[in-house]
Amino acid sequence: MMTQFVIRRVLYMIPTLIAVSIVTFLVIQAPPGDYLTTVVARLEAEGQYVDRGQLDALRERYGLDESVWVQYWRWITGIVLHGDFGQSLVYSAPVSDVIQERLGLTILLSVTTLAFVWAVAIPIGMYSAVRRYSVGDYAATFVGFIGLAIPNFLIALILLYVSYRYLGQSVGGLFSPEFVDARWNLGKVLDLLAHLWIPVVIIGTAGTAGMIRVVRANLLDELNRPYVVTARAKGLPERRLLIKYPSRIAASPIVSTVGWLLPSLISAEIIVSVVLSLPTTGPVMLRALESQDMYLAGSFLLVLSVLTVVGTLISDILLARLDPRIRYGRR
């Protein structure tokens, strides 16, 4: 039953991904002129010599004289078959080179943040629900609303100031200066971990605050359900009861947020990364959008969309594991 569900769900992903890639391509095609006109305009503005032969080669490669659909086909087959995302004009390098290292760090940052959000929000939310209107609940609610209300970049600036002024630690970036260009080794990993917590806390604060409210509300909904009373009437201890029954059912709406939490973390990361000058995708994405770097921006859009689709897939599979009604549901 479960295997069938997963296979079906993965097959459904394919048309979604195709549609997403088409929309992304149309978006990067939307500005007037094509990629090469932008390149030529820039080169000429800088008074540089424009090599006709090189231009024609590029024109040929991306099929810029062909119809939109042919261009799309070349673009997408380039990505799928050769991992070729096109040229970035801002960085004058292949997009894949620009993205690669940064994307890894971004995913690391996002996944760590997600883990942080859950690890903090779920226990606090559960406590808030079980001890509703207690001092602890009010405290969690208060801190939660503050976390929701303060913009990310402000927290980033405050933390920057505090840690520089009082801790004497430089918080910009993910690495200490001596490790930035170093090869990966244990020292670099430890250095990364020492820097990682600051952006994780900053990006995760709003999510944590929101998640506390979601967990609390969902669990409150379930706590007084008749099945909880039934389990209590069996003689089950309260703590085991809480974990096994209401929490399991209250978990479904939380798990279903994985899908949209991932992209929202990545977009929250953009602002924070600019403020903290992190070597992640955020600042590059911003720069690509500002300077109409079509292939770079488009690649980001595509990667973000794919992440969303994959996130939804993961959350759907988890939901089906949690709730047999979904597993056995009508197709």
């Binding site: 359900r225 008749p226 099945y227 009373v229 039934t230 389990a231 009437a233 069996k234 029954y245 399991r248 059912i249 949690l322 709730d323 047999p324 009604r325």
Partner: peptide
């Protein structure tokens, strides 16, 4: 032991 009124909601759905 106790038996409740609404077996649908009194038993866990999952």
């Amino acid at each position: 032991a106790m038996v409740f009124q609404e077996p649908m909601t009194s038993l866990s759905p999952v």
